[in-house]
Amino acid sequence: MSLPDGDGPIFAQIAAELANQIADGTVGEGERVASSNEISAFYRVNPATAARSLTVLAEQGLVEKRRGVGMFVAKGARERLVQERRRGFADRYLRPLVVEAARLGIGLDELLGLVREELTSVEVTTGVKA
């Protein structure tokens, strides 16, 4: 298993990956997250790097340590991540979309049409249990 070829430090990339899993519900609240040794083996990275990624999540209050058992997803972690990402949504996704559309000469109506089309054609797993 390898990480996408990002340019931040590895521990930050792994932390982001783990946060993704919490945000999309792959790892539910109260569930145990992988140990640093499991992360180290899975991503084939130094155990210190793996441990550091868990520290990042703990500092953000997304996971909490239960002594002698491991790290668990904190209560409200998913909700907080979702709120955070909603706030960053425009910057992260809309701006590049709008910029590229302008470069290609795609007008507003056409763009909205494309978004609608895309919405009907994709199935998104959100992790929210219906």
Binding site: S36, N37, S40, A41, R44, V45, N46, P47
Partner: peptide
């Protein structure tokens, strides 16, 4: 080798 090295290092730093 990389996997074994990491696993053994994790268990015996």
């Amino acid at each position: 080798f990389y996997d074994q090295l990491l696993a053994d290092y994790a268990a015996h730093p």
